[in-house]
Design a protein around this nucleic acid. Structure first.
Length: 370
DNA sequence: ATTTCCTTTCCTGGTT
DNA sequence: TAACCAGGAAAGGAAA
């Protein structure tokens, strides 16, 4: 019996690890990892301007704005509205309905006319993105990281490069064999929905989706690489050292992903939301192992096949051994009100993604292994 | 220190 | 009878 429990635990652990691999599992330069374990990490200087720019780079500047689809343009508007804490009700969404080419043709005055006070901010942000999209092809002499196509790794780098001390660490490590002759794995493209959003990570470790596939931000790995190098190694003059980041310091966790997650979403970490956890299982059919299944893929209807096993998995992720389907389902029912889930009446163990859930639609992600 | 969000836990009562 | 559903209430943890 004990053995069986142990086996189950082992299976679940493996499952969790596979679905949400700790970032340490990937090769990260030793200097960087040691810095993560250092308390200094919590109080490192975060230069506002460069950090925000770095976030943008990691999220938006991976595709030429003039190549954005209408959906991507809308996503960008949405992101910008939120980023600037703008009252969305003052924006006529019809004005946002354009593709990237049209967007890039707008002058500052056009933006002002269309979006009022937000127009300047939009124009400036777009200009920054366009500028970052045309980096000089200067060989910095700095070896690349091996990212293994893992978006968490990208996030880690994005996070680290905003940190002056870590920049020094990186330089110290520049001759370390670890990076030597490494090349970038082009297996991942970040989601434009929002920089480092949960959605962008939904396909993490699953199936990279192609920029040609239509909806997502594209952009070559070379673009990103150039951006990273520029931010890490070229913008030293922009840095204001030892300025503490606003708000509560991030918790130092053994799981580096937690550290990264804390900045991505107002209140949640990637995969921490139950509905995202469920979604990710559904999108990882190879790992699903009969836990959940799509009843109607296009409508977002799914069914729990092994409800208690899913609950245990959720509990394992939340380090809560007492999680049950009863409790999990209560949390699921709270999503009805927020329209993240919709009721499916008369069907046991069946739920449906609602309009406020993202990342599960076939149009959201092409080729997610579903 | 406070507020907000997202659960988690417990519960009662109903349905399949 | 067991399993599940619905939702109220209170509380906890984390982040802002």
């Amino acid at each position: 019996m004990a053995g069986a429990t142990c086996d189950m635990s082992s299976i679940l652990t493996n499952y969790i690890t596979t679905l949400y691999p700790p970032i340490q599992a990937h090769p990260v330069p030793p200097g960087l990892l040691s810095s993560l374990d250092n308390d200094k990490f919590l109080t490192f200087a975060i230069p506002e301007s460069s950090s925000e720019l770095a976030v943008d780079l990691c999220g938006w500047a991976q595709n030429m704005p003039n190549l954005w689809t209408r959906e991507q343009v809308l996503d960008w508007f949405s992101y910008s509205i939120e980023r600037n804490k703008w009252d969305a009700s003052t924006i006529d969404l019809k004005q946002c309905d354009m593709d990237g080419q049209r967007l890039c043709q707008l002058s500052r005055q056009d933006m002002r006319t269309m979006f009022g006070g937000l127009g300047d901010k939009l124009y400036d942000h777009l200009s920054q993105l366009k500028e970052w999209q045309t980096p000089p092809t200067v060989n910095t002499g700095i070896p690349d990281y091996e990212l293994n196509g893992d978006p968490f790794q990208w996030d880690l780098i994005c996070d680290l490069i905003r940190n002056e001390d870590l920049q020094l660490e990186i330089k110290k490590e520049r001759d370390y064999d670890f990076y030597a002759d490494r090349t970038m794995d082009a297996g991942y493209y970040s989601d434009p929905i929002s920089p480092a959003s949960p959605e962008s990570c939904a396909s993490a470790g699953t199936v990279p989706y192609s920029p040609q596939a239509g909806d997502s931000s594209a952009g070559s790995d070379l673009d990103i690489k150039s951006h990273l190098k520029r931010d890490v190694f070229s913008n030293k003059n922009d840095v204001t050292p030892n300025k503490r980041r606003r708000g509560r310091p991030r918790k130092l966790a053994s799981d580096c992903r937690d550290i990264l997650e804390s900045k991505k979403n107002k209140h949640s970490a990637r995969g921490t939301h139950l509905w995202e956890f469920i979604r990710d299982i559904l999108l990882n059919q190879d790992l699903n192992d009969g836990l959940l299944k799509w009843e109607d893929r296009t409508e977002g209807v799914f069914k729990f096949l092994r409800s208690e096993a899913v609950a245990q998995l959720w509990g394992q992720k939340k380090k809560n051994a007492s999680m049950t389907y009863e409790k999990l389902s209560r949390a699921m029912r709270y999503y009805y009100k927020r329209e993240i889930l919709e009721r499916v009446d008369g069907r046991r163990l069946v739920y449906k993604f609602g309009k406020n859930s993202t990342g599960w639609r076939l149009s959201d992600k092409v080729s997610q292994g579903c």
